[in-house]
Each structure stands twice: as C-alpha cells, then as structure tokens.
Deep mutational scan, measured.
Amino acid sequence: TEEYTYTDKEKADRAAKEWANRGYTVTVTQDGPTYRVRVG
C-alpha cells in the first residue's frame, strides 16, 4: 500500500482515476486541507 498526499482536490481525483484505470484499488480520504490517495 502506498499513500500520496495532495493539497489540490482536482489533482487527487486525477491521480485516483489514473491508478484505478491501471487496476489498483484506490481510496481517497480528506484530511483537513489535504487529500490522501491510498493505492493498493
């Protein structure tokens, strides 16, 4: 499991979509002003 942190919702959504397109399980959680994209 890897985790990426973004401050921009659009970038987080785009990253999540790209990982999902590659067949990974993706979870996006909002943590205050940041968005965490957990992959795998």
Rank of each mutant, 00 (worst) to 15 (best):
Lys11Pro: 05
Gly32Ala: 02
Ala12Arg: 02
Ala15Leu: 05
Gly23Leu: 02
Thr7Trp: 13
Gly40Met: 14
Ala15Phe: 08
Ala16Pro: 00
Asp13Met: 15
Lys17His: 09
Lys17Tyr: 10
Ala15Gly: 04
Pro33Asp: 15
Thr27Ala: 07
Val28Ser: 03
Tyr24Arg: 04
Ala12Pro: 00
Asn21Glu: 14
Thr27Asn: 07
Ala12Asn: 00
Asn21Cys: 09
Lys11Thr: 14
Thr27Asp: 06
Ala12Phe: 03
Gln30Val: 10
Thr5His: 09
Tyr4Ile: 05
Thr7Asp: 13
Thr29Glu: 11
Ala20Ser: 10
Gly40Ser: 15
Thr1Gln: 11
Tyr35Trp: 15
Thr34Asn: 12
Lys9His: 07
Glu2Lys: 15
Glu3Phe: 09
Asp8Gln: 06
Asn21Phe: 08
Thr1Ser: 11
Pro33Leu: 12
Tyr6Leu: 02
Asp31Met: 08
Pro33Lys: 11
Glu2Ala: 14
Lys11Glu: 15
Tyr6His: 03
Arg36Trp: 06
Arg38Pro: 01
Asp13Ile: 14
Ala15Glu: 06
Val28Glu: 02
Asp8Gly: 04
Tyr6Gly: 03
Lys17Ile: 11
Gly23Lys: 02
Gly40His: 14
Ala15Tyr: 06
Ala12Gly: 03
Gly32Met: 02
Val37Pro: 00
Gln30Ala: 09
Asp8Ser: 13
Gly32Gln: 01
Val28Arg: 03
Asn21Gln: 13
Tyr24Asn: 03
Val37His: 01
Ala16Met: 06
Lys11Gly: 10
Asn21Val: 09
Val39Pro: 03
Ala20Leu: 13
Val37Ile: 08
Gly23Gln: 02
Lys17Gln: 13
Arg38Trp: 12
Thr1Leu: 12
Asp8Lys: 05
Thr5Val: 14
Tyr35His: 04
Thr5Met: 10
Gly40Trp: 15
Lys9Trp: 13
Asp31Trp: 06
Lys11Met: 14
Val26Phe: 02
Gln30Phe: 07
Asn21Ala: 14
Ala15Val: 11
Tyr4Asp: 03
Arg14Val: 11
Gly40Lys: 13
Ala20Pro: 01
Asp31Val: 13
Trp19Ser: 01
Ala16Lys: 04
Trp19Tyr: 06
Arg22Thr: 04
Thr25Ala: 10
Trp19His: 03
Pro33Trp: 08
Val28Ile: 12
Val26Ile: 04
Asp13Ser: 09
Arg38Leu: 14
Asp13Leu: 15
Glu2Phe: 15
Gln30Trp: 07
Glu18Pro: 00
Asp31Ala: 06
Tyr35Asn: 01
Thr1Asp: 11
Asp31Tyr: 08
Val39Arg: 04
Thr34Ile: 15
Tyr24Gly: 01
Thr25Ser: 10
Gln30Pro: 05
